[in-house]
Amino acid sequence: MKHLLRALLFFVLALVAWEALFRAKIWSPVLVPSPVSVGRYLYEAAVDGTLWDATLVTMRRLLLGYGFGIALGLPLGLLTARFRIVKDTLGLVALGLQTLPSVCWVPLALLWFGQSETAMFFVVVMGTLWSMIIATDNGVRNVPPIYARAARTMGSSGLQLWFRVMLPASLPYIVSGMKQGWAFAWRSLMAAEIYVTILSGFGLGNLLHYGRELNAMEQVIGIMFVIIVIGLLADKILFSPWEKFLHRRWGTAK
C-alpha cells in the first residue's frame, strides 16, 4: 500500500510539473501540449469510438500473428532440439533471422503482400517465430538429462516422453521465449502500422502516424500512453499467470 501511494504521488507530481511547464510557455503549445488536452483527446476518441476501433484492429493483428508464431515456433523448436539435421539447417536460419530487427521485414512484406492484412500478419509472425524456435530449442537442451533417464526407467518413451517430460521441463525457457516474442511482435507491429496505411483497418500505429501528420501532438502523446498501457496489461494478463505457475512449481524467484 505504501509503495502504491508513493508511486501515485510521483505520477501526480509529474503531471503537475508537466502542466506547469506547459503554462510557462517555454515551448510552443504545438510541441508540448497540456496534460489536460491529452486527456481530452483520449476522452473524445473513446467516446466517438476511434480509440476502441483502433485498439481492436491492432490487438487482432497482434494476437493472430503472435498466436500463429508461437504455435509454429514451439514444434519447430522441438524439432531443432530433437534432430541434428533440423538444428543444422532451420536452427541456423532462426539464429540468423532472430538478430534481424523485425521491422526490417516490413519492406519485404509490402512488396510480397501489398498493403494488406497479410503483410501485417507476416511482420508479426516474423517477429515472434524465430525467438520462439530458439527459446524452445534452448529450453529442451537445458533439461537436466536425469529427467529423461528417470522417465525412461518408468516406461516413458517417444512422444509421451516429449510431451510429458521434455516440454514441461523446458517451460521456464519457453515462457521467457514467449515474452521475448511478444516484445518483438508488439514493436514490429507498431513500426509497421506507423510505416504503412492499410485501408482494411486503422490501428493504434495509424492513429499515431496521423497525429503527426495533423500536428496533433495531444493525439500523438495520448496514443503513446495507450500503447504503454496495453504493453503493461499484456504482461499482466498473458505472462503473470505463467510466471506465477513457474514460481510456485519450480520455486524460482519472481
Binding site: 537436466p144 533417464r149 514441461p168 517451460l171 512449481r249
Partner: peptide, 11 residues
C-alpha cells in the same frame, strides 16, 4: 531406478 539426485519433476 533410484538416482543420487531424486530426479523428481518440478512441474
Amino acid at each position: 531406478v533410484l538416482f543420487q539426485e531424486a530426479a523428481l519433476f518440478p512441474w
